Computed example of a mutant assay.
Amino acid sequence: MLPFVKEENTLWDYLKTVGKPVVLYGTGDGADKVIARLEKNGTAVSGIFASDEFVRGQQFHGFTVRKYSELLALRENVIVLIAFASELPEVLDRFYKLAEVHETYAPHVPVFSGDQTVTPEWIHKYEAELQTVYDRLADVASRETFAAVLNYKLSGKLSYLQECTTKRDDDLKELFSFGEEETYVDAGAYDGDTVKEFLNLSGHRYKKIVALEPDPKNFRKLTEFIRQNGLNAVSSLQAGVWSECGLLELNGNGGRQSTFRKPSGHKKIKTQQVDVVSVDSVLGNDHADYMKFDVEGVEKEALTGAAQHLVPDCNGVLPKLLIAAYHHDEDIFALPLLLWELQPDYKIYLRKHPYVPAWEINIFAK
């Protein structure tokens, strides 16, 4: 086992032997995934709870859903499994308050069907790659984050996420600097939230913005954001980002998580054929100063399609990159290795931003 991996077993192994009732906090797709994994594990569920404002006496997997406040007041010695994801401060506070009252975990389950997840066997299989990336990360905070994420995914312990979480805005300002005449490529622009982020960082001074979003509902929100804010020199494209141009099936009902991969646990999801482009084809001879890739599991393909533009500008400066590294467990090592293969001169930093479970793990490269 790698020296920075402290956990020797998985949460699922622990639940087999602990001998305490297991209850879930949360309903929906996340809870479906957790229950399916527990059934495979031979671990029974003893109750289902949800936030007070969502409890209306409904049934879920044969249980009457009870309130969060009842769970807090419960005298029984139970194990609580958090079965939904959130970045909202008030919801995160509820998670941590639960952990003060009951033995509480946030199980790690895959985002996409068929994906491997972190286990001791997985650690052993990718030991060389994990050690290489750990050693090459640019600072101590990155290595601490790398280790904490792996230990969390094995154990489900909230403490690992708490100890490595930082604020995205602080990290962007600390690790990157922004000039007045920059070209920004936003791959996975959603409704314009990260265009707004860039505008705030650059003081609303820029040369050009290229915003790409494949989902029709999201794209309408993006174009409305651009119109309402009177933004000039913005090229918005209703297209996904890939290694080459073409057509692909998009899975999604609007929202952040429309994806070209097959989501895990979703009962009903709409599919539609959409255009995909490479960043290289979109930029042509232009140089990008900053590129953000949060493309719901196809970051590897998106980076490959931007390879021709991962080159220094006339001043010898490489494009700044912000890359989501949490959609697949392999992303934490596979994306840095790919990036160094495409451009060895990048320094890579790893940061974890507020979210339970271990979403919002981001690569900062410069």
Score class of each variant (00 low, 15 high):
residue 3 P to E: 13
residue 11 L to M: 12
residue 18 V to A: 12
residue 21 P to G: 06
residue 22 V to R: 00
residue 30 G to S: 12
residue 31 A to E: 02
residue 34 V to F: 07
residue 42 G to K: 01
residue 45 V to N: 10
residue 49 F to S: 01
residue 52 D to A: 08
residue 54 F to N: 05
residue 58 Q to Y: 06
residue 63 F to P: 04
residue 64 T to P: 04
residue 74 L to P: 05
residue 74 L to V: 12
residue 87 E to Q: 13
residue 90 E to V: 10
residue 95 F to W: 11
residue 95 F to C: 06
residue 99 A to T: 12
residue 99 A to E: 15
residue 110 P to M: 02
residue 111 V to S: 08
residue 113 S to Q: 13
residue 114 G to Q: 11
residue 116 Q to E: 15
residue 117 T to V: 15
residue 124 H to D: 13
residue 132 T to W: 00
residue 133 V to D: 01
residue 138 A to R: 11
residue 138 A to D: 08
residue 138 A to Q: 13
residue 145 T to M: 01
residue 150 L to E: 01
residue 151 N to L: 03
residue 154 L to H: 04
residue 158 L to T: 11
residue 159 S to I: 14
residue 163 E to F: 00
residue 173 K to E: 02
residue 177 S to P: 01
residue 180 E to D: 09
residue 186 D to Q: 04
residue 186 D to A: 07
residue 192 G to R: 00
residue 198 F to W: 13
residue 199 L to H: 10
residue 199 L to M: 14
residue 205 R to I: 13
residue 206 Y to A: 04
residue 207 K to P: 09
residue 207 K to I: 08
residue 208 K to V: 12
residue 209 I to R: 01
residue 209 I to M: 09
residue 210 V to A: 02
residue 214 P to F: 09
residue 217 K to D: 09
residue 219 F to Y: 15
residue 222 L to I: 09
residue 224 E to P: 04
residue 226 I to M: 08
residue 228 Q to I: 06
residue 230 G to Y: 10
residue 234 V to H: 06
residue 235 S to G: 02
residue 241 V to T: 12
residue 243 S to W: 00
residue 244 E to Q: 11
residue 245 C to T: 15
residue 245 C to A: 13
residue 250 L to T: 14
residue 252 G to V: 11
residue 255 G to T: 08
residue 256 R to M: 14
residue 257 Q to F: 14
residue 258 S to L: 04
residue 258 S to E: 08
residue 259 T to F: 06
residue 259 T to H: 10
residue 269 I to P: 04
residue 275 D to A: 13
residue 275 D to R: 09
residue 278 S to W: 00
residue 281 S to I: 06
residue 286 D to L: 15
residue 289 D to V: 03
residue 290 Y to Q: 05
residue 297 G to R: 02
residue 298 V to Y: 03
residue 300 K to A: 13
residue 302 A to T: 07
residue 315 N to C: 06
residue 316 G to D: 10
residue 325 A to P: 03
residue 329 D to S: 14
residue 336 P to G: 08
residue 336 P to V: 02
residue 338 L to N: 12
residue 340 W to D: 03
residue 340 W to M: 01
residue 340 W to I: 00
residue 341 E to H: 12
residue 344 P to K: 08
residue 346 Y to I: 01
residue 348 I to E: 01
residue 348 I to N: 03
residue 353 H to N: 10
residue 355 Y to E: 05
residue 355 Y to I: 01
residue 356 V to P: 02
residue 363 I to P: 04
